[in-house]
């Protein structure tokens, strides 16, 4: 249950130890419905991580292309 460090409140980083603790408790105690709840929560984190990575890669490529166009135009000028 890892997440990015980010945001003003540092919430992303702050979630990490809490999630690990939740996982530890689940492993040690075991409870059907809480197991399902933990699965749902882990899936939400999973989607969040993948979506953020997708956005990063897309924006990185877009900015790279844009800046290359810009500097090419400036050098022609």
């Amino acid at each position: 249950m890892f997440n990015f460090h980010g945001g003003t409140a540092g919430v992303g980083g702050a979630i990490t130890p809490l999630g690990v603790y939740a996982g530890y408790l689940l492993v040690t105690t075991g409870n059907f419905w809480l197991g399902i709840a933990f699965l749902v929560l882990t899936s939400m984190f999973f989607v969040l991580i993948l979506a953020t990575l997708c956005r990063y890669v897309i924006n990185y490529r877009r900015n790279q292309k844009h800046m290359q166009e810009y500097w090419r135009a400036v050098s022609v000028k």
């Binding site: 249950m1 997440n3 919430v11 702050a14 979630i15 809490l18 999630g19 603790y21 939740a22 408790l25 689940l26 040690t28 105690t29 075991g30 409870n31 059907f32 809480l34 709840a37 933990f38 929560l41 939400m44 984190f45 969040l48």
Partner: peptide
């Protein structure tokens, strides 16, 4: 997400495990 995770921790601490 923080509150949901915290709520899960609390729920796990309060409920007994059924290992199911």
């Amino acid at each position: 997400l923080f509150f949901l995770t915290a709520a899960l921790v609390v729920a796990l601490l309060l409920t007994g495990g059924d290992a199911l």
